[in-house]
């Protein structure tokens, strides 16, 4: 179909969301521990849930990634959230429900869910 200049701008915006991954996104990063211990504790489900939630809430600037074992296997699944300014929050024993809450309150509203963190 023939495109107008406005159509191209729309395509540009839409596609950029996808290709931005290659130039580095500027939003929150959600990093799930996906070593054997993490996967055994259910990290894969948490990870999938995180991706689904990000799509559902249209959080284009968020990067969802994984990391290996950090040596706290009894605390798995571990999820780290890194804010755009680089602040790191570590959540432990995360499940589907917890990741939903983390995304809603931490990523969207900016409030750390302190009852899930390793400090609590």
């Amino acid at each position: 179909m023939k495109k107008t200049a406005a159509d191209l701008e729309q395509i540009r915006k839409e596609t950029l969301k996808n290709v931005e991954l290659r130039t580095g996104k500027d939003g929150y990063k959600i990093i799930v521990g996906m070593a054997t211990c993490g996967i055994a504790a259910g990290a894969r489900d948490v990870f999938k849930e995180a991706i689904e939630k990000v799509i559902e809430k249209d959080l284009d600037s968020v990067t969802v990634g994984q990391m290996g074992c950090i040596g706290l296997c009894s605390m798995e699944p571990i999820v780290e959230v890194i804010s755009p300014s680089g602040e790191k929050t570590r959540y432990i024993k995360v499940n589907k429900e917890k990741i939903d809450n983390i995304i809603t309150s931490h990523i969207i509203d900016g409030n750390v869910v302190s009852e899930y963190t390793s400090e609590s």
């Binding site: 969301k17 996808n18 290659r22 991706i51 990000v54 969802v64």
Partner: peptide, 10 residues
């Protein structure tokens, strides 16, 4: 458009 959390460029 689909959301991909990772891309493999080959």
């Amino acid at each position: 458009m689909a959301y991909y959390r990772s891309q493999v460029l080959i």
